[in-house]
Nucleic acid binder design. Structure first.
Length: 851
RNA sequence: GCCGGGGUGGCGGAACUGGCAGACGCAAGGGACUUAAAAUCCCUCGGGGCGAAAGCCCUGUACGGGUUCGAUUCCCGUCCCCGGCACCA
């Protein structure tokens, strides 16, 4: 008679162990424990969306959990926290539509996603859970903003310093002093042309505009000048670039960041404008082509245009400028379009040869890069070439291409050449190579006081305000007499007021402008002031959350210094590649500010970074509701259990790869767990199977076990989780075929499986007779000697083609192997009576006989 | 257009540092067990050819070349797919 007491029941054992982990507090990280090395494993915290978890989330979380559990078994004190990046547009859009407080919506979503996350059995220290929307959290986001506001960047020391230490000229008036200080703050206000999205009723950061449309929603975006808060990330450009060499990140991500920062080295050159007192500066990376500068182009927004435009050109120029401002970024960057532009009537003098050259304006020159004006060298710049060709401007070649054919075309003005070559038409510089020329002319320009070496970055200051309700309020007051003052630290947090209308006004005035009680403030001295009504962007909270985990309940500091010293930096950071630039660059920027001011002890926050790849639907398409190919983790767990879910996510392929979901693959790993279970547990009684016995394992089993222990450990170290699982499958296949299964082998198998499938591992561990959780059991050691094969099979090739195989003992020497190989019948036949010219023996691989 | 990543069976993928291509899993086919089915277990499984069979031969890692005793791996060229950037002077 058979009962089913011994069946594998993931639903039961998973609930049991999750409750045990929670109640026992076994995964609470101990601060400042100097007896063990520390290890900080961090997941990018999610936005708590109404859709809940999708299968992409657990991919990264499982990988980090495997590492966390593995490191604990290796004796590390592991910090593995979780939380919520909870400010965000969906909850606010919902609030606008329904009038529900976004806090309520968000809280509900957090509760649901927490339930889902816990059902996967991750070993998070839930006592450290944080959410960026909680006042006790954003108090410190505001605090860091104040640090930013109250600091300036000391260019000589290359670091941020308190604003009180800024040197000010005494002869300035009070007002001028204040202006000077405000201009130097790392958080400052500016009237900037922003990306205004009428449909969303907000401005967007450059990064949030994709091809002239809003990243979220795809609405059109136009340019509009508005007062905005900016953060001086540009001051950190050089350090953000340099310190990339210190972090262990994928090269591709580092490159994206380098390109985003976009450093270029060149020269600034001053051009005199004919018949007036104005000079204009341009930035160029090719000062060696100065002799070929045949005209200049100003950006339509350039301030000098009004002063230099001749009367007869005024109307045309004005018309063009109007059009340019009306154009959205999309129109301006449409590459299919032809270059446009108009002549200003003014001329400049080329400083190297005294030639009079016309000044044009065109929107292919950007006001925000360099000086907003360029010298145009049509022979050696493709954009200038296109423009010159269209408007019939002179093209003078000044670099001779090394290639003869190219050189001919360039000399005829028919080809634009942007490479390095030899200088021509450049007076006494003729004959120089491009790099030499660059160096010499830069020195010459400096001597003549006409220019100097210069560096430019593509990186712009970070537009930090949003016309939104659902974000951190700025701790800033605007007084009646137009001063901007910061709240003091004791006044934090400045909490969001309750409002009854979440709609933006549509004029650009944020929703908070309607909260009268909240906005109007009277200072101690009686001065009336209004609160800042913009809020911070979603990135703010995620810039520093990894620090709050260190000390989440501290209400006197964002984090305690000794905890920061103990835990930082983050040893491993896992998350999606979509944050390659923004989140990771912003965090690094904030971290460097905090470093300068002495609040953190490391230059970089994240030592090692891994990106998990996207998981596609079963149809190979990106998962989306409209395609109907979304896989819900809840269903997978209900059908197969969390261990199968975890295992499958890791077994699909390399962590970083993009890969399609396949429900039958889940079935496959589930069968693997079943097979292990059946090999250990008696189906009827639920006790250990009678085949599991305390006996010495045979040689082959022992070898396979030790090989597997080594492989799984090595693979976890290198994030090769898919191959680690396949190695364990091989071992389970072997064990399940044994009639007597050595208990000690099974125990070690259970231990190495534990980081991947912790519930079944804990359950089996218990049923194997252990009374303590395996969470801190020592990771099994492997024996190098036991791993070695006794006999090795070698392929024997004749001239690179395999003819036969031989088996030799592992310690056979080369001569023995050669003899054995040469004596194979098939080899003799293949050699066709010829003498071996050369015999290559690759130990433990093959023999190749060349005749 | 530029930059980065990639292209291996029907599918996901594996292959140390240039050394037996296709581990492991899925799907498929065959068999065992069963009254039957499910589950489980065993076998086959890149393509083509020869053979009654054991087995043997040829070919094959997007395509075309090259280096090498030997190339999925290194080099050159071409095609395709994915991601990022997009007039940054």
């Amino acid at each position: 008679m058979s009962s089913d007491n011994g069946l594998y029941r993931p639903d039961e054992i998973e609930k049991k162990w999750q409750q045990f982990w929670e109640k026992s507090g076994i995964f609470r990280a101990k601060d400042c424990d100097e007896s063990r090395p520390k290890y900080y494993v961090l997941d990018m915290f999610p936005y708590p969306s109404g859709q809940g978890l999708h299968v992409g989330h657990p991919e990264g979380y499982t990988a980090s959990d495997i590492v966390a559990r593995y490191k604990r078994m290796k004796g590390f004190n592991v910090l593995h926290p979780f939380g919520w990046d909870a400010f965000g547009l969906p909850a606010e859009q919902h609030a606008i539509q329904t009038g529900t407080d976004p806090k309520e919506t968000t809280q509900k979503n957090i509760d649901n996603m927490r339930r889902q996350t816990k059902s996967l059995g991750f070993s998070y220290d839930w006592h450290r859970e944080i959410a960026t929307i909680e006042p006790k959290y954003y108090k410190w986001t505001q605090w860091i903003f104040l640090k930013m506001f109250n600091s300036y960047y000391d260019g000589n020391q290359q670091k941020a310093r308190p604003i009180e230490e800024l040197d000010i000229f005494d002869e300035l008036s009070e007002q001028e002093k204040q202006k000077y200080i405000d201009n130097h703050r790392l958080a400052y206000e500016a009237e900037v042309a922003v990306n205004w999205c009428p449909a969303l009723g907000t401005v967007l950061a450059n990064e949030e505009v994709i091809g002239g449309l809003s990243e979220r929603g795809g609405h059109p975006v136009i340019r509009k000048p508005m007062r905005q808060w900016m953060l001086k990330i540009t001051e950190y450009a050089e350090r953000l670039l340099d310190d990339l060499s210190e972090v262990d990140w994928p090269e591709s991500i580092k490159k994206l960041q380098r390109d985003w920062i976009g450093k270029s080295i060149g020269a600034e050159v001053e051009f005199k404008i004919v018949d007036c007192d104005w000079n204009v500066r341009v930035f160029t990376t090719r000062p060696d082509t100065l002799f070929g500068a045949t005209y200049m182009v100003f950006s339509p927004e350039h301030a000098l245009i009004d002063m230099i435009t001749t009367d007869d050109q005024k109307e045309t120029v004005e018309k063009y400028r109007q059009e340019a401002t009306r154009k959205s970024d999309l129109d301006r960057t449409d590459l299919a379009k032809e270059k446009t532009g108009v002549f200003t009537g003014a001329y400049a003098i080329n400083p190297v040869n005294g030639e009079k050259i016309p000044i044009w304006i065109s929107d292919y020159v950007l006001i925000s890069y360099g000086t907003g004006a360029i010298m145009a060298v049509p022979a050696h710049d493709e954009r200038d070439f296109e423009f010159a060709t269209k408007f019939n401007l002179p093209i003078i070649p000044v670099v001779e291409p090394p290639d003869r054919e190219q050189a001919d075309l360039v000399m005829q003005g028919k080809l634009c050449f942007i490479g390095d070559g030899r200088a021509i038409n450049s007076g006494r510089f003729d004959g120089l190579s491009t790099p030499e020329f660059k160096e010499k002319i830069t020195i010459w320009l400096e001597e003549q006081n006409l220019g100097k070496k210069a560096i430019n970055y593509k990186l712009r200051d970070w537009l930090f305000s949003r016309q939104r309700y659902w974000g951190e309020p700025f701790p800033i007051l605007h007084t009646e007499d137009r001063r901007v003052i910061a709240l003091s630290e004791q006044d934090l947090p400045l909490e969001l007021p309750l409002v009854d209308n979440y709609k933006p006004a549509g004029t650009g005035e944020p929703p908070l402008a309607n909260a009268d009680d909240w906005i109007n403030v009277t200072l101690a001295d009686g001065t009336k002031a209004k609160r800042e009504t913009n809020t911070m962007p979603q990135w703010a909270g995620s810039c520093w959350y990894y620090l709050r985990y260190l000390d989440p309940d501290n209400d006197r500091q964002g984090w305690a210094a000794e905890k920061e010293k103990y835990w930082m930096p983050v040893d491993l950071y896992i998350g999606g590649a979509e944050h390659a630039v923004l989140h990771l660059l912003y965090s690094r920027f904030w971290h460097k500010l905090l470093y300068d001011l002495g609040y953190v002890s490391t230059k970089e926050p994240f030592k090692k970074l891994i990106n998990q790849g996207m998981i596609l639907g079963e149809d190979g398409q990106k998962m989306s509701k409209s395609r109907g190919n979304v896989v819900n983790p809840d269903n997978v767990i209900a059908d197969y259990g969390a261990d199968s879910m975890r295992l499958y996510e890791m077994f699909m392929g390399p962590l970083e790869a993009i890969k399609p979901w396949n429900m039958q693959g889940v079935e496959g790993v589930h069968r693997f767990l079943q097979k292990l279970w059946r090999a250990v547990i008696d189906r009827d009684t639920g006790e250990l199977d009678k085949a599991v016995q305390q006996i010495q394992a045979d040689e082959e089993t022992l070898r396979l076990l030790h090989q597997t222990i080594k492989k799984v450990g090595d693979d976890i170290d290198s994030f090769g989780f898919n191959t680690a699982i396949s190695a364990m499958m091989i071992l389970v296949n072997h064990i399940s075929r044994l009639t007597i299964r050595p208990k000690a082998v099974i125990e070690r198998l259970v231990l190495i499986l534990a980081p991947f499938a912790p519930h079944i591992a804990e359950e089996l561990w218990e049923r194997l007779g252990h009374t303590e959780s395996l969470a801190y059991a020592s990771w099994p050691e492997y024996d190098k000697e036991l791993i070695k094969e006794k006999e090795i099979e070698l392929a024997v090739q004749v001239k690179g083609k395999i003819k036969d195989r031989i088996v030799v003992s592992a310690d056979a020497d080369e001569e023995q192997i050669k003899q054995k190989a040469l004596s194979c019948k098939k080899v003799i036949a293949a050699m066709d009576g010829k003498e071996p010219r050369k015999i290559i023996v690759i130990k433990s691989r093959l023999v190749n006989i060349v005749t």
